[in-house]
Design a protein around this nucleic acid. Structure first.
Lengths: 151, 151
DNA sequence: GATTGACTTAGAGCGCGCTCGAACTTTTAG
DNA sequence: CTAAAAGTTCGAGCGCGCTCTAAGTCAATC
């Protein structure tokens, strides 16, 4: 039981498909991967670590082209360490910017959800009045906010 | 100077292209937009507010198909408010999950950057020793960390 | 009246990131 | 020994989100 995994096992562990793993290798993102005598892939722990790193880059939406550039630098060995670090630093900066943009948009969505909640209260109240049930009133509903037509 | 903007002006203000604005309208994301007598689009403030909302959805990576569904609900008026709220709540939950995933991956990238920095120190030290300059040593460099082949 | 330039529609095309199909070989279970 | 499962290569195809082209209309300027 050596720690060299078949492509299906790697697929299972990483969540990628075997198709995608071959694709990544084809385009130079992964490799070289060991082979059995008959040509089947066997992934070593170092391959796994690299794939996991690629997945982190993917999570942060690095485009494949940049990953290829990074992989090429990595293949060129130690002298490219500064270049690789710089790539990561630039990418990280973009990622942090984007996280902030998403957080900001998420806040706006939260506000909208709350606005909808107030709409629902008002609508419920109006329809109950319409049906003649003028009780059921718990809190005063804020009439109608000036949400600037956002909806 | 009414507050009804031409498509180019809207493009300028939103960062979308005129092409994309027409595309969004075509697929039912935007609309209806007012027209001049000769058929040119004139965007009202309510259109602008909706577009800005769409852009927030896009920032949070809602797929266009979902935006279309949302737009359709909106077009159906008040009774769909609860459904709209639910869509937003579900989407927001996904967004928060994804923000967390990105933040986590970003942390890993930061760690890798720091690892590279230590590599650079070690490499600089080694090459200076190789050249016979055995001074230049400031801090003890941690020999070589066992970064599990991540690189 | 002619030209310039912003606008219109319908529909084709593109870049990205996979995803799948076809045809074949190897491994494994019964 | 056989049959099914899993692997291989090569190349085509797909879904998404635009992006652009072509052909034409209209408004304003020379």
């Amino acid at each position: 039981m050596e720690p060299h995994l078949s492509i299906d096992e790697v697929a299972r562990r990483t969540g990628l498909t075997a198709h995608t793993l071959r694709y990544y290798e084809r385009i130079g993102l992964i490799g070289p991967v060991g082979r059995t005598a008959s040509g089947q892939r066997r992934y070593a722990p170092s391959n796994m670590a690299w794939i996991e790193f690629l997945l982190r880059l993917r999570t942060t939406r690095m485009p494949i082209g940049k990953m290829q550039a990074f992989a090429a630098l990595r293949g060129a060995g130690d002298p490219t360490v500064p270049a690789r670090r710089q790539m990561l630093e630039e990418h990280l900066a973009e990622v942090l910017t984007e996280i902030e943009a998403m957080r900001c948009a998420a806040d706006a969505l939260q506000a909208k959800i709350e606005y909808y909640r107030s709409c629902e209260q008002r609508l419920a109240l109006e329809s109950s009045i319409e049906r003649g049930n003028e009780h059921e009133q718990r809190k005063s509903v804020p009439a109608r906010t000036g949400q600037a037509e956002g909806d």
